[in-house]
């Protein structure tokens, strides 16, 4: 198996928690991983991206080539579009629909969504709303991981294990909320892909 995943968002939105859960799951499966992150200045509310590569064979580059991402997973709709050149012809775009507006020239929301709906394969999900229903608005990133899970070649149970491990430190209740969130996200994607 091989998955090239672009994780996108805005500094402070915590896309690295998604990467951590995914990475832990991949490691459990004895897969190879490379994951390039954005640290530094952009974390201050700028555009951030992480290139995540998972494979059963050794991986060469830390960066994904143009047009070869199997998945763009974005926690913000405009940020999802920023990395389109990476998407492969058969790739999926999975994005949260809640905009993060911290710039004066944020485009009209409808125009952003129009561009997303133009793609042949996408899932647009109200991760914040679903997370709230699951019991904690802060679990929206795990809703997103759930929504992306049908397009990642890793056993869903392993992703759940990844969440257990990543959130274990924060207590059983937080683990449960996040598990509920990932399951809800997955269900939505399966019904709306």
């Amino acid at each position: 198996m091989k998955s090239n995943i672009i994780l996108a968002g805005v500094g402070g939105q915590g896309i690295l928690s998604i990467a951590a859960a995914l990475g832990t799951a991949a490691l459990e499966n004895n897969l190879h991983i490379k994951q390039a992150e954005t640290h530094g200045m952009s974390q201050r509310g700028g555009a951030v991206v992480s290139h995540m590569r998972i494979s059963d064979k050794p991986i060469a580059s830390d960066l994904i080539q143009m047009g070869t991402a199997d998945l763009i997973l974005s926690v913000e709709p405009m940020e999802a579009l920023r990395y389109l050149p990476f998407l492969s012809e058969r790739g999926y775009l999975v994005t949260n629909t809640t905009p993060f507006i911290n710039i004066p020239n944020y485009p009209e929301y409808e125009k952003v969504m129009e561009e997303i709906h133009r793609l042949p394969r996408f899932v647009a999900i109200d991760a914040d709303g679903i997370a709230k229903e699951a019991g904690n608005a802060r679990a929206s990133n795990m809703v997103m991981l759930g929504a992306a899970s049908p397009f990642i070649d890793i056993d869903f149970s392993k992703l759940e294990d990844g969440i257990r491990e990543v959130f274990a430190r924060k207590g059983e209740q937080i683990v449960e909320v996040n598990l509920k969130a990932i399951r809800a996200g997955r269900q939505f994607a399966q019904e709306n892909k």
């Binding site: 805005v10 201050r44 700028g46 143009m66 047009g67 579009l81 050149p85 990476f86 710039i103 952003v112």
Partner: peptide, 15 residues
């Protein structure tokens, strides 16, 4: 080359 970035996408510098 992949799909070009749509023109609606605005820069998001740090702040």
């Amino acid at each position: 080359q992949g799909i070009p970035v749509p023109p609606v996408v605005a820069n998001r510098p740090p702040a």
